[in-house]
């Protein structure tokens, strides 16, 4: 007898069932993340209003503000009110700027999305390029040099990479603008920061996987059937090595949304990262909850999409 019984086999139920299951999971994840954030932000500092405004205004004004935002209510009522507001699409108002949280996030989502897409594309370009190069050159000094650079690159946090790029491009080689938003040129340095730091992970992951797959029986079989070396590599080796890269892309979004706080701060990029950062330093609780909520929804949605894409790369992973 083993420590665990084998898990029950899920009856074949088709794609709709799979999708429904994933959507329920998505919803559950968001509910838990929001609840945890709510507890974290609202419960631990017993009195957020005094924490923000303490000493600056009269005690009776504090009471009035508490009543206005509902902080005088018991915690479970505040929690229900929060969800009630959420269902009406209302994330509340920022303490610090009086903005509507939903509108503030919507106004900045585009900038962060642009940075995310550009950064991810550059990460993939750099990572896949380096990974494939190192795998093809495996065992040689070129492989070792490439992977050495990658290990070094993994040790550079995005904020440091950003500062170094600012230094290089602002003072030594003034080609790209080092801060602000508006044109494609503004996007280059922040995206390169994310591309260089993120690309290292893809390179390492892909090389490791490629080297394993290159020795697999099915690859040797393809070669023995007389397939051209390049076709074997692209159609079999690379395709089979791409699954971990895809999985990492899903996890990478969480990493990206984290790194983006510092990167946006350095390049004065008007995205969700700067919004979240300011909210945290201002103890702006509705804004913190709002940005965490939006980030969590983005992360689970992207992971859902990736789950749906898996079978395209690997038919064995067809949705039951």
């Amino acid at each position: 007898m083993t420590l665990t019984r084998p898990r029950a086999v899920v009856p074949a139920s088709g794609f709709p069932r799979f999708l429904a299951g994933r959507l329920v999971w998505l919803l559950a994840a968001v509910v838990v993340v929001v609840s945890a954030t709510f507890v974290l932000i609202y419960v631990i500092p017993a009195d957020p209003v005094s924490a923000v405004l303490g000493g600056r205004i009269q005690a009776d004004q504090i009471e009035a503000i508490k009543a206005r935002y509902g902080f005088d209510l018991p915690i479970w009522q505040q929690y229900l009110r929060f969800w009630g507001g959420l269902f009406r699409g209302d994330l509340g108002f920022s303490f610090a700027t009086q903005q509507d949280v939903g509108q503030a996030i919507a106004a900045r989502a585009g900038a962060t999305a642009a940075l995310a897409v550009a950064g991810l594309l550059l990460s993939l370009l750099i990572g896949v390029g380096t990974g494939v190069f190192a795998a093809l050159m495996r065992g040689t000094w070129k492989d070792r040099a490439a992977m050495g650079t990658v290990v070094l690159g993994m040790g550079v946090p995005p904020f440091l990479m950003g500062l170094v790029l600012v230094f290089v491009f602002a003072y030594l080689l003034p080609v790209f603008p080092v801060s602000g938003y508006g044109s494609a040129a503004h996007l280059v340095l922040p995206a390169l920061t994310i591309g260089l730091t993120g690309g290292a992970y893809y390179a390492r992951l892909l090389r490791g996987r490629l080297v394993e797959v290159m020795d697999a029986d099915f690859v040797r079989a393809s070669r023995s059937r007389g397939m051209r070396e390049s076709a074997v590599f692209v159609r079999h080796t690379l395709r089979n090595s791409f699954l971990p890269v895809l999985t990492w892309m899903g996890m990478d979004l969480g990493y990206f949304l984290s790194g983006v706080i510092a990167v946006e701060a350095i390049f004065a990029w008007p995205g969700i990262g700067t919004l979240a950062y300011r909210a945290i330093t201002d103890y702006d609780t509705p804004m913190i909850v709002g940005t965490v909520l939006v980030s969590a929804v983005a992360i689970v949605t992207v992971n859902l999409i990736i789950d749906l894409v898996y079978p395209l790369l690997d038919p064995r992973m067809a949705h039951r």
């Binding site: 665990t4 974290l40 990493y255 790194g259 979240a276 950062y277 965490v292 992360i299």
Partner: peptide, 30 residues
Amino acid sequence: VGWLSNGLMRFTDIFMAFPYLLLAAALQSV
């Protein structure tokens, strides 16, 4: 096996959805 295992694994999965630096920063400021 059963609810404890499933619950823990689901909880772990859900935690992956947290933007960790945001969580860390919020927790630290709290």
